[in-house]
Design a protein around this nucleic acid. Structure first.
Lengths: 211, 211
DNA sequence: GTCTATAATCGGATAGAC
DNA sequence: GTCTATCCGATTATAGAC
């Protein structure tokens, strides 16, 4: 899942196509308005099906929202796996930031769904945060602490470094509207985005590498 | 405006008190659910007044939302003024990051209202972004470029550095829910927050200062 | 000036048609 | 198996009471 493709017309001819059309429309609407602000009417309209029909494919608005959020978690876990302790610190950090930035660029809607969910107190992904995310952070903190004790990184609290990375990658997806306003009304070009990504990596590496 | 105080009981006895109660309740509800997801019923309930009565003080939901967002812009401008070109780069940057972090800590709700507004395409603050914010960024970019040319900062695209700062400060307000989950269910203590703030400042300064 | 009963519309969901 | 007419509660806003 996650990406949006397929010709608009033929899309609704199969069951899978209709489900997919609803799913994609729901992603966009939930990202823009959050769970409560989103309406099944708007989702159905964007999917190109009659409103009431949506309930045949997804029984409730909440079921649809759960399907969408679970998909976002899957993508999150994929990017998370790119932080590799076998690499040297600079390589691991650069790769991880790059993967997160690319993900924010490729799927800003997924990022916004995540943000919107956290903003309202994470009622749906709360479990994930308290289990999988806690475990992930604990194991990565241990790696970073080892690198610090080996003198490869400056002394620091590892989690606040991860917050710095998460904040930034999230920002490039969630605040696209603000960036567009600050970029003469244009979204960041591919070249601008690559420049931004390189600069984020360089700045943060200089910020934490020892020597 | 911006802060929430006053004893709950006596608060509703004056007109100003009632308006203030509505205003504060609206801030909280808009921050949590966004404009569309917020309901005047929920706002009235939290304000402690009958639902329909709210419309006497603020004629429409949108008027109330505008009042709330304008207040957020005022606070934003205050923090923005703390970036001072008369200081040396390290001092100016440290002061600015500190002011933004403190603001996110003191008024996370304001930050979330801003985030929520950007997420849906900034229909209300769009003008502000295209005028005041563009001007602010342009003038600050000029200052940073001068510092770069004087050899005080590493070569970089100044705006992406500001994005890094905005992203981080925003994150500490908007993703409080995630941080709580990652902190044994506890909000960051004052000490933890001060540690985080110092680390953000140190990391970013090392990342951009020359030498 | 302040508040509330009520109108008008919207939104999620279902029972039952095709 | 697929779709829609329709129900009913929620929501914004107002007209008019106090």
């Amino acid at each position: 899942m996650t990406a949006e493709t397929a010709p608009r017309s033929s899309r609704l001819s199969t069951r899978e196509g209709r489900e997919r059309a609803i799913f994609d429309a729901a992603r966009a609407v939930f990202a823009e308005y959050g769970f409560k602000g989103a309406t099944t009417a708007e989702i159905a309209k964007r999917a190109g099906i009659p409103k009431a029909n949506l309930h045949y494919y997804f029984p409730t608005k909440e079921a649809l929202y759960r399907a969408v959020t679970e998909d976002v978690l899957t993508a999150w876990l994929e990017a998370a796996s790119s932080f590799d302790e076998t690499a040297d610190p600079a390589g691991a950090i650069a790769t991880y930031i790059g993967a997160k930035m690319d993900m924010a660029r490729a799927d800003p809607i997924g990022s916004r769904i995540w943000a919107s969910e956290i903003l309202r107190g994470a009622p749906v992904i709360g479990d994930f945060l308290e289990t999988t995310l806690v475990d992930w952070l604990n194991s990565r903190e241990a790696i970073v602490r080892r690198w610090i004790s080996e003198g490869k990184l400056v002394p620091m609290e590892p989690r606040y470094f991860f917050y710095l990375i998460w904040a930034t990658t999230q920002h490039y997806a969630d605040f696209e509207g603000q960036m567009v306003a600050l970029n003469r009304g244009q979204p960041l070009s591919e070249a601008q985005f690559e420049t931004a990504k390189a600069q984020v990596i360089e700045t943060l590496l200089r910020g934490v590498l020892r020597g």
